[in-house]
Amino acid sequence: MGGLVLSAGPVSSAPLSVSGVQVDSPIVTQVQMTRMERRMMERRMMERRMMQRRMDRRMDRRMMERRMDRRMDRRMMERRMNRRMMNRM
């Protein structure tokens, strides 16, 4: 009477696929981009840069406006204070 031995095949470090068969590690090949693909990437990068510039300009403008508003507010307050002081004299 011999013993029944179940084996999963040869032991290796390769991962098992869905079907249960061992698969070698995938080979990654690099394909050269076509002119159109390269152009599309360049265009996308340019658009991103333009959008970033536009946002930066908007932010700069808003900051400058706020700065000017603060200056104007300060001047107005100083004038009011000067008038009050002059009226007290």
Rank of each mutant, 00 (worst) to 15 (best):
R66N: 10
M76W: 03
G9S: 06
A8Y: 10
E65A: 13
M85K: 10
M1D: 05
A14D: 14
M77K: 01
Q22T: 06
R88F: 08
A14P: 00
T34V: 05
R61W: 15
M68V: 09
P15T: 01
P15W: 00
M89C: 04
G2I: 08
Q32L: 13
R62C: 11
L6W: 07
L16D: 05
M59R: 14
R83V: 03
N82Y: 02
Q32V: 09
S13V: 10
M81N: 08
Q22M: 13
R80I: 02
R83Q: 14
R57L: 15
R43W: 13
R54T: 15
N87Y: 12
G3W: 07
R83P: 00
M50C: 06
R71V: 02
R88V: 12
A8P: 10
G2L: 09
A14R: 02
E65H: 08
Q22I: 09
D24C: 13
L4Y: 05
R35L: 07
R61A: 15
R67V: 04
R83C: 03
R38L: 08
V31D: 05
P26Y: 01
R58A: 14
T34N: 05
R62S: 13
T29A: 12
Q30I: 13
E78T: 00
N87R: 14
R79F: 00
V11T: 08
R54V: 14
P26D: 03
S25G: 06
R62W: 08
S12A: 06
D60P: 00
R48F: 12
M68I: 07
V23R: 13
V28C: 05
M85Y: 04
D60V: 13
M89A: 05
D56T: 13
L4E: 09
M76K: 02
M33P: 06
V23S: 07
D24S: 15
D56Y: 15
R58T: 12
E47N: 04
G9A: 10
M76E: 08
R66Y: 02
E47Q: 13
L16H: 05
L6G: 03
D69K: 08
R49A: 11
M85H: 09
M63H: 12
L4G: 03
S19N: 15
R75Q: 06
V5Y: 09
S12G: 10
S7P: 02
S7T: 11
L16R: 09
Q32H: 12
M59Q: 15
V31L: 11
R39M: 10
R38A: 08
M41P: 00
T34F: 05
R79D: 02
R80D: 01
M89L: 07
R49V: 00
